[in-house]
């Protein structure tokens, strides 16, 4: 059995001729596209949950002393910056869990297991802090986040999930 695969670009729709592919390979491509779309949909759902958790955390921790031990409040800028970081990591790595630190920062945390995890802390300014555990090794550092995800963070995440 053969399948017809019709390609329609999302952009510049006036400047294309439909491409019809009819082959077993086309079925394979179609299956892969379906799989990718389902995967993207699942990722959006998972990241949606992470965003919801991030928003809840922000609302819970925006007042001074939110932890009962004199924590600093999480400010609007920290929330917006963490949200931006989260959106830039979407579809690249599994969705993190969100929380806050007594420093008044929001954290995104990726956990493979208790001995393999990475925390990234985002506050009001361009610097973000991270700390991770990779078995017996601990890493920590500071990176700048203006627009693109810092290389240090993607490196540590890739190490966490793909090394």
């Amino acid at each position: 059995m053969t399948t017809t695969l019709m390609y329609r670009p999302l952009f510049n729709r006036n400047d294309y001729s439909p491409s019809y592919a009819t082959s077993n390979e086309a079925q394979g491509v179609l299956d892969q596209i379906r799989e990718w779309l389902e995967s993207a949909s699942r990722a959006r759902t998972l990241y949606g949950q992470a965003l919801e958790e991030l928003t809840d955390t922000f609302l819970d921790c925006r007042k001074e002393d939110w932890d009962g031990y004199n924590a600093l409040p999480v400010e609007d800028d920290a929330f917006l910056r963490t949200k931006a970081l989260l959106s830039r990591l979407m579809n690249r790595f599994p969705a993190p869990t969100a929380s806050a630190t007594p420093h008044g920062s929001l954290t995104l945390e990726w956990i493979v297991n208790p001995r393999r995890r990475l925390m990234v802390s985002v506050g009001n300014d361009e610097q973000i802090a991270y700390a991770g555990v990779f078995g017996t090794e601990t890493v920590q550092g500071v990176a700048n986040f203006v627009r693109d995800v810092p290389q240090e963070i993607t490196h540590q995440l890739a190490r966490l999930y793909y090394a």
Partner: peptide
């Protein structure tokens, strides 16, 4: 942020 990363570790 430097202090925070050390404390997080």
């Amino acid at each position: 942020k430097h202090d925070e990363s050390s404390q997080m570790a």
